[in-house]
């Protein structure tokens, strides 16, 4: 094993990983089970530097189904991967990319007012960004090869502990 954690460290890191996975999976499933769901509303409500780019995406009939597909399956697969600890590294990296896109389209900048009222108050840093950083932490403190299916998948027979 390339990482040595105390039991407490390992448990807390796994709890963090599973919680984020749970959140992703449910966000994905909610969209999956709603036949009317589309990313258009979210994209149209974009603000900040990349506002025009996201709005242009929303208005492109050919691009929207692709964005919807990536979001829906991306969220579900990332979520599932993090909960069971399978392919955690690619799951974390894609999750970080998704969250970065969400943040860039809805940054917590001064003067930005979104349709969905937020449950808290944010200045630059919001919960999307915190979740993103939490995933970065998980990326540098990996746990899936200790607790998770990656332990089975990436098992090295010569490496015995």
């Amino acid at each position: 094993m390339d990482k040595k954690y105390s039991n407490a460290q390992l448990i807390m890191l796994v709890i963090l990983r599973v919680s984020i996975g749970w959140h992703f999976l449910y966000e994905g499933l909610v969209k999956f089970s709603n036949p009317n769901w589309t990313s258009i509303g979210f994209l149209v409500d974009s603000k900040g530097l990349f506002e025009n780019l996201f709005k242009a995406m929303a208005n492109n009939i050919k691009v929207v189904p692709f964005i919807d597909f990536i979001n829906l399956w991306g969220l579900m697969l990332i979520g599932l991967g993090l909960i069971v600890g399978l392919f955690s590294r690619p799951a974390l990296i894609s999750g970080i990319v998704l969250l970065a896109l969400y943040y860039l389209s809805h940054p917590a900048i001064i003067g930005a007012d979104y349709m969905m009222p937020s449950e808290g108050s944010y200045l630059f840093i919001n919960k999307t960004l915190i979740e993103l950083f939490a995933m970065c932490v998980l990326l540098v403190f990996p746990t899936s090869k200790l607790i998770g299916l990656d332990r089975l998948v990436f098992r090295n027979p010569s490496n015995k502990s």
């Binding site: 009317n36 769901w37 509303g41 979210f42 149209v44 208005n59 009939i61 969905m116």
Partner: peptide, 20 residues
């Protein structure tokens, strides 16, 4: 019972105009 997000967007006439 539609999702909170959907209600907010729909109420502002933003959804279901371009696509469906």
């Amino acid at each position: 019972v539609s999702s909170a997000t959907e209600k907010y967007f729909a109420g502002r006439g933003l959804l279901y105009t371009y696509r469906n």
